[in-house]
């Protein structure tokens, strides 16, 4: 197991290197001069040159690459061109709301999708199964901003249960924090749930076809013992992979939902940075989001080993 863990952890290093290279090229291979794009057509020559020097654009290409690389390794992602902060500080300032939103959204998604998927699979072809399938089709096809607006109309405007928009940090108290995040998290959660319900249903169906399910029933176990202890325990392995992979979708969803609900998260940071052409922030934020994504998948890979003895004991 230790060997497996070490191997997994080491395996993400080349991925991180490739990702940071890609982020670097993303900025430097975009057509046109970043300095000119930032300052606009009215910029003076001196202003342009100053900015180029500040961004290191006047150096030869390979030196720029080396500088970027050594900075990244030291955790220095540069300074924001507009805010008086380092990119890392800016990112950390906006991380809290997004993290809360993503966790709450994912939790809602899991709480909805896993029971629905299990029930649908166990009653395959029944009306319950059909209803669940309609839910997941709707959930997958509805645009997230539209769902957000519906929820706001019903629960904020009509029923006044939740605020229309805004954000309260955890430091303002747990209850206000949750109250403000509920509708955005539900929006995100329902869309995530639609996807995960499908995955849960199909991997449960696959597992239920196995002979060991028959063995379990013929031991005299109750239906729920078989479903949870034998079927779900196996089906959970692919579900976990899907949860990991859906994090990318979750982040994209979070960015849109943050905008609709005016939440000061990473989404807002990115959108502001893009509209102001704050290249350093765009670069840094993308790198950090990608890194988070890679780490989440690493954690999931490790859980995989924990859940599946075939992975744990065979991959030497």
């Amino acid at each position: 197991m230790l060997e497996y863990i070490i191997k997994r952890i080491l395996s993400i290093i080349p991925i991180l290197i490739v990702v940071s290279l890609m982020v670097f090229f993303l900025i430097h291979l975009t057509p046109g001069d970043p300095a000119a794009v930032i300052l606009g057509p009215a910029a003076t020559i001196t202003a342009l040159e100053n900015l180029r020097a500040e961004m290191g654009l006047d150096m030869p290409f390979h030196e720029q690459l080396m500088t970027w690389f050594s900075n990244v390794i030291r955790g220095d992602l540069g300074n924001s061109l507009f805010m008086k902060k380092t990119v890392l500080e800016a990112f950390m300032d906006h991380l809290g709301p997004t993290l809360s939103l993503a966790i709450m959204g994912q939790m809602i998604a899991i709480l909805i999708s896993i029971p629905l998927g299990i029930i649908a699979a166990n009653n395959r072809g029944s009306n319950i199964d059909r209803a669940v399938s309609i839910f997941s089709t709707l959930g997958i096809s509805i645009p997230n901003f539209l769902l957000a607006l519906f929820l706001v109309l019903i629960f904020s405007v009509a029923l006044s249960l939740f605020p229309v928009a805004g954000y309260r940090p955890l430091s303002a108290g747990l209850w206000p924090h949750i109250r403000y995040l509920t509708l955005p998290a539900v929006t995100l959660g329902i869309i995530q749930a639609a996807l995960l319900t499908r995955v849960t249903r199909s991997s449960m169906l696959e597992v239920l076809n196995n002979n060991y399910i028959k063995t379990a029933y013929s031991k005299g176990l109750s239906e729920w013992a078989v479903i949870i202890k034998h079927a779900f325990r196996n089906a959970f392995i692919p579900i976990l992979t899907a949860i990991g992979q859906s994090f990318a979708q979750l982040v994209v969803g979070a960015i849109v939902v943050e905008t609709v609900f005016n939440i000061p998260g990473i989404g807002q940071l990115l959108i502001n940075a893009i509209s102001r052409r704050d290249f350093q922030v765009i670069q840094g934020a993308i790198l950090l989001i990608a890194t988070t994504f890679i780490i989440i998948n690493l954690v999931i890979d490790l859980l995989y080993g924990l859940l599946d003895p075939r992975v744990r004991l065979n991959r030497k």
């Binding site: 060991y212 063995t215 325990r233 003895p309």
Partner: peptide, 8 residues
């Protein structure tokens, strides 16, 4: 017998 035992 290959698939009649629970792998986990």
């Amino acid at each position: 017998p290959m698939s009649s035992l629970n792998p986990v």
